[in-house]
Design a binder for these strands. Structure first.
Lengths: 204, 204
DNA sequence: GTCTATAAGGCGATAGAC
DNA sequence: GTCTATCGCCTTATAGAC
């Protein structure tokens, strides 16, 4: 067996462990996730994990890190499809679609992150904080730009708007699997709601 | 010491334990919450908790149960203030305000419930399922009634609307404490957003 | 009602064989 | 790379003193 093959096998196993850890973490929480169970789900022994990771904390750190990176990559991809200088409505729709695709397609990672945020040792999620801040800034700037362009209704607090939208999107990880609704449908619906609301306006 | 006083003391201690448990549970999750720590936070020993509760599961069950009951009571209170046959906009605003007051004022209980839903032994949260269903029905009927009255914009899926609104509201438990925003302000903002959206419509 | 002491079991982590 | 074996620690829960 060559060195390259050996390295490859190690990398594959690493990913298997990360995926298994994300799944367990999303279902049972940090303290309810046992290395024995992670290992068992991929037919390994608990002790063997230590060949790939230095500690349980280090493993969790990588899961949370991958979680935020998956989201950023997919949102960027969706937004890039729009080309140069997209209008606000197109941009918002693409960003919402990207965020939802990311968190619902990789629900194990997202739920691992959401459910365990603040319940994992501080050092662990501090590690990914810079990435989270950068992603948050993308959304902040999206709405700031829209305000400058004058397409935001007066009286709307874009800070609270962003938090409300994040809540709607992220909450979908909780009910999506049982809903039978498609990601596209949810994205379309949420974009429409946050743009135009649910109320039939009386035009005067 | 009379019997009444003794009973009173027991009831007071029970509440102290429940509050302490909710706080620990919201911060560390079910498996990361240790009876020793709950007890220590109210200057007791772990073994003493068993005078008040039969097991850790029984204690958690009561916390989750109290969580949903707190919300239902406060929402009902806010809605009742409106009197007979309120219009949709007033009703929605009151319900949103009630829900937010409840989950933010009793954030320990709400976060304990949200963060641990699905990560606690099934038997524990099955116990409160009927209460949760009843509360969900209140919101379902609120939007169904609005549709019948014809005040919902055509094309809006009220099922997805309800889930989006729940997401926005419940997510606030995560950022509220650090935000410096008042509950009233958040309620006003979310009601306005879900009714009218953020986009400045071009009227033709 | 609360304490101390302890039983029974499970966890993360390490060492060394293979 | 993965296994087996094991150490030390900490958990829930119980028993009995006070």
């Amino acid at each position: 067996m060559t060195l390259i093959q050996a390295t490859k096998k190690s990398a594959v196993t690493r990913q298997l462990i990360l995926d298994a850890a994300a799944k367990m973490l999303s279902r049972h929480g940090y303290h309810g996730t046992y290395l024995k169970d992670i290992a068992a789900s991929i037919n390994m022994q608990a002790g063997s994990l230590y060949y790939h990771f230095n500690s349980k904390e280090a493993l969790m750190q990588e899961v949370l890190n991958k979680s935020i990176q998956l989201i950023r990559d997919i949102v960027e991809e969706e937004v890039d499809k729009l080309g140069h200088k997209p209008d606000f409505v197109s941009l918002l729709k693409a960003a919402i679609r990207g965020h939802l695709i990311a968190i619902l397609r990789h629900a194990d990672y997202t739920l691992a992150s959401i459910r365990n945020y603040g319940q994992i040792p501080k050092s662990v999620h501090d590690f990914a904080q810079a990435d989270r801040d950068a992603y948050e800034n993308f959304w902040r700037e999206l709405f700031e730009q829209a305000e400058k362009e004058g397409v935001i209704r007066s009286g709307v607090n874009t800070h609270l708007l962003r938090l409300a939208l994040f809540g709607s999107m992220n909450w979908a990880t909780i009910w999506y699997a049982d809903s039978g609704t498609s990601v596209e449908e949810i994205a379309e619906s949420q974009a429409d709601l946050f743009l135009h609301g649910c109320y039939k306006e009386e035009r005067d």
